[in-house]
């Protein structure tokens, strides 16, 4: 497998605080890569660095073997932020159409893709409703659709299932597995343990450092426990 994202000795400081401390990561293409950690651990900063929104203070980040330096590289991925970044006054369709148009999709292609992703997140019948009338779960699903509309090879999801009921959470994960089948690389942050187990590989993040990295199965075997929760307590429990 080829590497999709490479991070080498990445340090990110905000004023004097070190948010990300010497992170080395290699994310393979086609895998679901999880970033697990408590809130404030630096997960969001890490994905923003990968997305090229933030610039690392030190170290290098490359996407498909090329350093993140050009705007055009941003076409390769779709980003779903922690908050629902949607235009409240616009309808679901108009939101997607706006984001799709920035990726220069032709009018015809745009229409097809919007129809596809709305179908995928089960919002087709609400396409002409303004977003402000949506429930929290519907907004999350629309945000996911917006991240997928331009068929990126890599999608970066920051806490995609936060505040979502179990049924919807399962349906979002089904979408992610389906995307993985199609060869899409997925980076997902979470602080929910059982969700972390669904990832192919998992990095445990604490205080801006990667404290463990492996498949969920091996992580559990290594410390000889049965749940991710115990793994996490084993590596990061000192402060508790």
């Amino acid at each position: 497998m080829n590497s999709m994202v490479e991070m080498q000795n990445v340090i990110h400081r905000y004023s004097k605080n070190t948010i990300i401390d010497k992170v080395n990561l290699s994310i393979q293409s086609g895998e679901i890569f999880g970033l697990l950690g408590p809130s404030g651990a630096g997960k969001t900063t890490l994905v923003k660095l990968i997305a090229g929104i933030l610039k690392p203070t030190e170290g290098t980040i490359s996407l498909k073997g090329t350093a993140l330096r050009h705007l055009a590289q941003m076409k390769n991925y779709g980003f779903m932020a922690q908050s629902d970044a949607l235009y409240q006054e616009l309808t679901a369709w108009e939101n997607l159409d706006f984001f799709a148009s920035i990726y220069n999709l032709s009018r015809k292609r745009r229409k097809e893709r919007i129809r596809d992703v709305l179908e995928m997140v089960d919002l087709s019948s609400f396409k002409d409703q303004p977003v402000e009338t949506f429930s929290g779960g519907m907004k999350r699903r629309l945000s996911l659709a917006a991240a997928l509309v331009h068929e990126p090879e890599l999608i970066i999801l920051d806490e995609p299932t936060v505040g979502i009921d179990p049924v919807l959470r399962r349906s979002i994960w089904e979408e992610l597995y389906e995307l993985k089948e199609k060869g899409v690389t997925i980076i997902v942050t979470t602080h929910v343990m059982d969700e972390a187990e669904k990832c192919d590989r998992l990095a445990l993040i604490k205080s801006g450092k990667v404290i463990a990295l492996d498949t969920p199965q091996k992580l559990k075997e290594k410390v000889n426990v049965t749940s991710m929760e115990e793994v996490f307590l084993h590596y990061g429990g000192e402060t508790k």
């Binding site: 705007l71 941003m74 629902d84 970044a85 949607l86 235009y87």
Partner: peptide
């Protein structure tokens, strides 16, 4: 404040 600027800046827009 609603996060759309950040979302927008995660696209190839100038």
């Amino acid at each position: 404040t609603q996060g759309t600027l950040e979302r927008l800046l995660a696209t190839p827009i100038r």
